[in-house]
Amino acid sequence: MEILHSILPELIRIIVCAVCGAVIVFGNALVMGYAERKLAGHIMLRPGPMEVGFHGVLQLIIDGLKLMGKQLVVPQQANKPLYMLAPILSFAPVFVPLLVIPFSDKLQGFDINIGLLIILAFASINVLAILVGGWSSNNKYSLFGAFRSVAQNVAYEIPMLISLLAVVFMTNTFSLKEIAAAQSPVWFVIVQPVAFLIYIVAMVAETNRAPFDLPEAESELTAGFHTEYSGMAFSLFMLAEYANMFIVCSVATVFFLGGSSGIPLPYFEYSGAVWFLVKVYALMFFLVWIRWTYPRTRFDQLMNFCWKYMIPFSLVNLLITVVMVKLI
């Protein structure tokens, strides 16, 4: 009894965290899947999904059921264990970063002083999953998609890290909560506009979305690394992509948009999450917006942009930040 008494609060906390993580991952995929198709439709002067439910709000649920019912096809020449492992490897790590994101002052799984490192470390596993999935499908399109994904992710991780480091230098901590708290008068988007811009571009590239969606370029590679995947395996990749979008947008919110700060609401320690989610979904809207605006870049353009513009600019920005922090 005593044992139960001692571990019960912590146990409840872990269970609540896990449930909330699952709710965020699946709910976000539903909301973003619907919003993406609806926004894409309206940008193209068409209404988007309209049939299932009022203005098609139930479309994604139907799609999910359909994907669950579909057969999971394994190509004959594929490397079966790795082929089955890749979607799980892509999907499983997205839960960990959600634990350290401060949704509001008190709504946070765990406040660890290396929160940023946890997010970056577990985000990098996704690349491995894409690579394994692309290789094990034994299909040239998948392999090309995986290759591109790796080159792109490795290249764009550098400016992303450096632009985040500029903020870390100003706040002197890796803890996401303290970084969010450090921008109570001015958001860092005003202090660090260059870092913010670089982060936004790198974020689009890291989540493999248009205009940097070369790993899954439909017109060239059919569907890139998940060409051969069907049914649940495919939907796990999609869930992971949307969850990754949520995570990178949350990081942008915490680092540049003041976390959960905003107009005070009652019980602000908890209700700040409303502002946090508003900011996150505004950024997600921006991601969808640019996806349906810009054409896909060519691969050499993508690499040139990273190595010739993003990295030098982020380094100069870091240098200026360091000097300013030292002077002030």
Binding site: L45, P47, W292, T293
Partner: peptide, 21 residues
């Protein structure tokens, strides 16, 4: 030019749809 592109699509987004159900 990127900003101009964004302006074009946001305008298109708020203009009425032209397709027929």
């Amino acid at each position: 030019s990127l900003i101009l592109g964004l302006k074009v699509t946001i305008k298109a987004m708020f203009s009425p749809i032209v397709t027929v159900q």
